[in-house]
Each structure stands twice: as structure tokens, then as C-alpha cells.
Simulated assay, not measured.
Amino acid sequence: MAMATGIVAVALDLAGFTWATRVLLAVTAALWAVMAVTFALRLRGGREKRRAEECKPVTLTSVAGSGVLGVGLLLFRYEAAAEALLALMAVAWLLLLPRVVRHLRRRLPGAAYLVTVSTQSLVVLASTLAKQLPARWLVWPAAVLLALGLVLYVFVLGRFDFGQVRDGAGDHWVLAGALSISALACAKLAVAAGPPAPRPLEALMLLILAVAFAWYVLLVWAEIGTPRTGYDGRRWSTVFPLGMTAAAAMTAGTVSGLHWLDVLGHVLLWPAVAVWAVVAVGAVRHAAAPRAPG
């Protein structure tokens, strides 16, 4: 929820809707606080329970959610808070990622792509800070993480259960979202490394974004062919790629000078906002629904 709401807020800012960004960013901060408390409580159990929790890809939302919030805070010049979040993310990523990767098997769900999303979240926030502070020393570590995130994507892709495209409950969309955030990471890194933006990074950004668009179209087609209308918490993992693809397209359009990409990003923003609203209503209704005793 924090990741999805945060990236929609960032995309709305890119489109010029500052008031909506402020509202959704406040919601994101509240959701992040709930996520942090929930994450801490889950790790309070016994050693075996804690180890089992730490091996699940979903734990990496703690990294990705922090990254989205950090980028949102930088929109309003809260550099100190973003720096603190980056440090917290780096520690969590170093502790969690190796354990998650070691336990990845065959027939993986879409949530497994969080290994890439969390890694590229570090790149996006570090690159944004590198430009805004400025702190150029962050550029090279970010470049290494960018490459690692792409390697992890290929690793998960080879083990992904493609039946999820037809039957998935929502997190299968991270198949596209992981590439969209990789393209955004390229764009942010290119800006931090320039000016002018390095041509190889620009080319890589456009290539990754093209593949992300292809997955996006395939996933939309699959949703039309096999509608999945019931509420499921994993639908927040559908909102995130929708918002991320819009944000990546707008940012890539600015970096590359391709105006049509920026226009496409503005167009893709509205399905992301609409789906966010539908899923948010579903979440509220689900939370308010009476529970059977026991």
C-alpha cells in the first residue's frame, strides 16, 4: 500500500498536480509508519519464525516502500529525512536480500521480483540525492546496484511461473513494474551523472522501458481475457507497476527529449490513479466487513 500510494503521488507531481501529491504523500507516510511497526512485530517472534519471515520476498517491501517515501520527501526538500531513509534502506537491503535470494525456487510468484524492485529503489533514491544535495560519490555505488538489479530480474524471470499472467491475484504485475523502476533508475542515474546524460544509460533506459511497455500490454490483455474482480491485498502490487510505468515514462521523456514519451506517461497516469482508487475502496470495504467469530 505504501509503495503503490507513494509512486502514484510521485507520478502526480511529475504531471503537475502538487496538491494531490501532498495528500497522497501524507497517506504514504502514515502507511509507512504502519508498515514499519508491522515489520518489527513480525520479527519479534522466536528465532525460527523470524528466519522464516526474513526469507519471504514480501519483506523487501520495507526497502522499496522506504525508497518511494524518500523520493516523495525530496520533492519538498526534506533531504535529511531522505538521507536517513536511504541509510535505513541500505541496512535492511543488505540483511534481507541475500536471505530472500537463497530461498528462491522454481515457479515463483510475481512478488519475487521485489529483489529487483528493492535494489532499484536504492538506485532511484541515491541518484536523486546525488543530484539534489549534490553528493556525486553516490553515483558509482548506484551504478553497481543498477546492474545487480537487472541481473536479479533475469534470475527471477528464469524461475517465474508464467501461469501467473493468466491466474495471478495481482502481484504478477511486478513482472512489468520491476522493469519500469529499472528504467526510472537509469533515468535518475543519467541525470545524476550528467550533464550531459551518458548516452549508454539513455539507450539502456529506453530499451528497458520498451520491454516494460511490452509486458504492460500483455498483462492488460490477460486481465481483459481473464477478469479478476474480487478484492485481494495483492492488488496493491498491480497499482505500483501502473504508477511506476507512468512515472518512468514521464521521467524518461524528459531525460531523452522524446516528448511523446512524456505524453504517454501522462496518459498512463490516469489508469494508475483509477486503479489506486478502486483498490483503496476495496481495502476499506474489506477492512470494514464483519468477520466470522473464531
Rank of each mutant, 00 (worst) to 15 (best):
V174P: 00
R42G: 15
H286C: 07
A29V: 11
Y216V: 00
L179F: 06
A9P: 07
I7F: 04
P109K: 07
A212P: 07
A36D: 13
C55R: 15
W140R: 13
E223Q: 10
A222K: 05
Y216Q: 14
L75P: 00
P196H: 01
R99P: 02
A272R: 10
G243C: 04
R50D: 01
T5C: 03
A11S: 13
W260Y: 13
I7S: 08
G149K: 10
W93P: 01
V68M: 05
G194L: 01
A185H: 03
L85Y: 04
L14G: 14
R136V: 09
V100R: 09
V154E: 14
L189N: 00
T18F: 08
D232H: 15
L74G: 11
L75R: 15
P241S: 06
T18P: 00
L219K: 06
L204H: 01
T21W: 15
R234K: 12
V211G: 04
H286P: 00
W215L: 11
W32Q: 13
A80D: 14
V191Y: 01
S118H: 03
V281D: 08
M1W: 06
A203Y: 02
V156I: 08
H286Y: 12
L125C: 05
V151S: 12
A81D: 11
H266T: 02
G72V: 00
L129F: 04
V191R: 10
V23F: 15
F162S: 11
V100D: 09
L204I: 07
K131M: 08
S180Q: 08
L43V: 05
Q132L: 11
G257C: 03
Y231P: 09
V100F: 07
A20T: 02
A20D: 12
A222H: 04
A147Y: 10
A135N: 13
T116N: 08
K188Q: 13
S66I: 01
R291E: 14
G170L: 05
V115I: 13
V263E: 13
V117S: 11
R235N: 08
A185P: 00
E48N: 05
V101G: 04
S121V: 02
L86F: 06
A288N: 05
D262H: 15
R42T: 09
P271Q: 07
A2W: 09
A4I: 05
